[in-house]
């Protein structure tokens, strides 16, 4: 029984073999990459931009920093970080999915942001960087898709410079019962329909809603960060806890 638990993981509400999750998540994002930005705006009524702004305000990114925007997708955070780090810094947009990276690269090039951005396809569980080499790591709406979250957090801790910080922006659990009911109705009824109409793909958006429910809550994630070695960990809830921003430091 124990062995079977170790060999399987969640994929939304389904249980799948661990080695299958990455490719199944990849399929979801290959499918939604082209319409990713427009769907983000539609699904969150544009509020995702405010969540990301808050993450940038808490990131402490300054001129000359090296920033890793993990699971950076279509590069919303990278675009801002690229300006904040200036010519002497660099931003690495990392994603496991090449479709998302391509969409991100095209978008950032169209914005004229080219000089200090690198695009690297990578797995968050085994980050291809030397120890103590990154100032700030952000992972926005990406951690819940990672198969082994503990390994990913350990890997992030390893590559952070002493004094560096990790920011995790992710869907979480809301305290309000009324909000929770509205949110559930919206996620399981309206969201897949919107996905069907705009991106012609209701299954991917059903996975999105399910994966959010399977993701660890605020306190659990904070504990996981501490187990990985992070110090001064804290989180702030946004929009009633629908989204939480976790922050941890390496000393």
């Amino acid at each position: 029984m124990k062995e079977s638990q170790q060999n399987t993981t969640d994929f939304g509400y389904k249980t799948v073999a661990r080695e299958e999750k990455a490719s199944m998540v990849a399929d979801v994002f290959h499918s939604v990459a082209a319409k990713y930005d427009i769907m983000n705006d539609l699904m969150s009524f544009g509020i995702h931009r405010l969540w990301k702004r808050q993450a940038i305000a808490c990131s402490g990114v300054r001129k000359g920093h090296t920033v890793l925007d993990l699971a950076g997708g279509t590069g919303d955070l990278t675009a801002k970080f690229s300006q904040l780090v200036g010519d002497t810094g660099r931003v690495i947009l990392g994603d496991i999915n090449d479709s998302m990276l391509k969409v991100g690269r095209d978008k950032l090039r169209d914005l004229g942001l080219v000089s200090n951005i690198e695009y690297v396809q990578m797995n968050a569980e085994a980050l291809p960087f030397p120890d103590n080499s990154i100032d700030v790591i952000t992972i926005a709406f990406g951690l819940r898709n990672v198969t082994d979250k503990d390994a990913a957090l350990r890997s992030m801790y390893r590559i952070l410079k002493p004094g560096g910080r990790l920011l995790i922006l992710e869907f979480s659990k809301t305290d309000s019962e009324a909000l929770s009911k509205i949110y559930d109705f919206y996620s399981f009824n309206l969201l897949p329909t919107m996905g069907k109409l705009v991106a012609n793909d209701s299954e991917s958006y059903r996975y999105l809603a399910e994966s959010i429910r399977m993701h660890p809550d605020q306190e659990t994630l904070k504990g996981m960060m501490e187990t990985a070695g992070f110090e001064q960990t804290s989180y702030q809830n946004m929009t009633g806890g629908i989204v939480a921003l976790h922050r941890g430091f390496k000393y």
Partner: peptide
Amino acid sequence: IAVTFTGHSFMVFNNYQEH
């Protein structure tokens, strides 16, 4: 409210706790 000019654009933040 914190304001910074990056050379290309302005960035404005509230709740800014950094340097």
